[in-house]
Design a protein around this nucleic acid. Sequence first.
DNA 1: CACATTCGTGAACAGCGTTCAAGAGGGTTT
DNA 2: AAACCCTCTTGAACGCTGTTCACGAATGTG
Lengths: 200, 200
Amino acid sequence: MSVSDRRARLRDDLVAAAEARIVEGGLAALKARDLAREVGCALGAIYNVFPDLDALILAANGRTLSEFEAHLDATLPSAGEGDPVDELVGLACAYLDFALAHRRRWQALFQHRLPEGSAIPDWYMAQQAELFARVEKPVARLRPDLDGEACALLGRSVFSATHGVVALGLDEKLASLPPNTLRAQLEILVRAIGRGLARA
Amino acid sequence: MSVSDRRARLRDDLVAAAEARIVEGGLAALKARDLAREVGCALGAIYNVFPDLDALILAANGRTLSEFEAHLDATLPSAGEGDPVDELVGLACAYLDFALAHRRRWQALFQHRLPEGSAIPDWYMAQQAELFARVEKPVARLRPDLDGEACALLGRSVFSATHGVVALGLDEKLASLPPNTLRAQLEILVRAIGRGLARA
DNA sequence: CACATTCGTGAACAGCGTTCAAGAGGGTTT
DNA sequence: AAACCCTCTTGAACGCTGTTCACGAATGTG
């Protein structure tokens, strides 16, 4: 086996182990020594593949983002056909479903902060942008009068609002809501946003 | 000076020092040894006043919440008089203004997580509930047909949506928006929510 | 087969939150 | 005033963290 093959293998194993630790105990449970033991490598070997643990977490979060996009493709195959408001509600519910199904990994997405000053990789930014684009499309159909940039901003805001409702709804620090209640609230709110945005 | 006076003094000094550290470098910059040096006490003395640093952070965050309520009282003195939608927009803008003016302390409010399993103090939950109540009132005026619980839930959801727009709008991980752009988006979205909720 | 270079290794380092045995101090009783 | 007790204060020490680095092994090359 070549060197770069082993490297790639170790990389995948580490990301998988990181995901497992996140699923089991959240971001706080991700420890370098645990990972090394779990994948059967030396402690220092981690730092041959990733510059630091933040980069490893970013890789794991990238996988979560990809999985969420796959989830959207699977549950919302007919995008761009029906009522734009219904589509926004569908996107929001899909977001909630994914958060509920992969709670810890979803939490890790925004719980993780990079140390002051270090930049987010371009590939990660691009993955986030793809998500915003999904929301942007129905917004553009809802408001054909707005230009591209306005739609992009509005799409981001609608995503942000959705995220806020889900994030605070599941937050244990705020006494998290039962899934059914939360889903009902989300639907009410996103539908209100859609209706409120429809006619300027 | 009595013992409990010194204790109270140390407590206040520690919370003030914690706030200063948060303002200067965020939650991550809050270190026990720095605090001890700053207030001129021994390292262990911190743990005579607070069970751990989480409790100290909670105390600092409690002060931030109180300050935000004072900010609301100061900038929105005439609550319950005008258009409920305008009031929601005013609350949202006040939230944004506070977040901009006290960015690091505001971030600390929700960036901080308690270690798995430990409970949030009642006084902290109560302070959060007061905030939700502020949003609940205009929601109730907007929708007199809803009962108290429905209004409480909806108020929480409107707050969550507002928070989401502000939080992701200022998030460096997402390329944070300029304040003016963010304020415009927030106004558009909250107004849409208000209009969308108005007529069921 | 010999060499050069790269990689894997885990002990070591610096820093963290938290603890605790020991000593100092204030409050109460004699 | 003196002796006592108990609480508070102290900072060294503990266990854990992410990260580094000199060293030995292993790989690719001439």
